[in-house]
């Protein structure tokens, strides 16, 4: 019996590892299913400066393609969704029908103790999972800070399990000239982002798989 269990474990582990390697090897490869007319897009908003950069990014993207759009911001951040609403109101395109605005729990507020943050992190992860199951986006756009990490991790697991193949695009903040932020570095090193963009050419030189996108501000 023990033999069967261990053989089973070895096989599943091997398959899982093979699948993870496959998913990573496919990251940043072209979309195989180009027949879609729309790609549901999850936009993860940060705060202040991050949100302004994200809105500027969206304004140069082809909105009718990236639809419907789902905006997510931290529950403690009232400004970001408001800015996204203003942006969507001005757009006035027919494809924006399904656009939604949602709030997400944050794993840790500034100054919160580490003991209580274990509980809030689990709550935040559960909430992120629930939102991702509901939305199952084709495209995820994020530019930090931390809020996007649980979302991207869940998206990666969905890819591995074959639930949904989401393309993850991360745009590093214009404030990062010499080094990536922690979120950016994690997504880059773990090959979780299909494409990581930076806004300074000298930063691109340090991270060859990143792309220089210009300056969004």
């Amino acid at each position: 019996m023990a033999v069967f269990v261990s053989v089973f474990l070895v096989i599943t582990t091997t398959l899982l590892v093979a699948r993870i390697v496959y998913v990573i090897s496919q990251s940043s490869k072209p979309n195989r299913n180009t027949s879609q007319k729309h790609l549901s897009t999850l936009v993860v908003l940060g705060s202040g400066g991050h949100t302004a950069e994200m809105i500027n990014l969206l304004s140069v993207m082809q909105k009718d393609w990236y639809a419907p759009r789902y905006y997510i911001a931290a529950a403690t951040d009232n400004m970001s969704l408001q800015k996204a609403r203003v942006f969507e109101d001005i757009l006035d395109d027919k494809g924006a029908d399904g656009t939604q605005f949602m709030q997400i729990y944050r794993s840790r507020e500034v100054g919160q103790s580490y003991i209580t943050s274990v509980g809030t992190t689990l709550l935040a992860l559960g909430h992120a999972l629930w939102l991702m199951v509901k939305i199952r986006p084709h495209v995820i756009l994020c530019n930090g800070p931390g809020t996007c990490i649980p979302i991207c991790a869940i998206a990666f697991i969905f890819k591995v399990l074959g639930i949904r193949w989401s393309y993850i695009f991360y745009v590093e903040s214009i404030a990062r000239v010499k080094r990536l932020s922690l979120s950016g570095l994690l997504l880059y090193k773990l090959h979780m982002a299909d494409q990581l963009f930076v806004q300074w050419p000298q930063l691109q030189k340090q991270y060859p798989r990143a792309r220089y996108v210009g300056r969004l501000m």
């Binding site: 072209p30 979309n31 495209v139 393309y167 494409q195 963009f197 996108v213 969004l216 501000m217």
Partner: peptide
């Protein structure tokens, strides 16, 4: 002045028009 944005990589990956 902002530098012109280049989203070719994103378009290549998604096969966007």
């Amino acid at each position: 002045e902002p530098a012109p944005t280049n989203l070719k990589a994103e378009k290549r990956i998604l096969g966007a028009p």
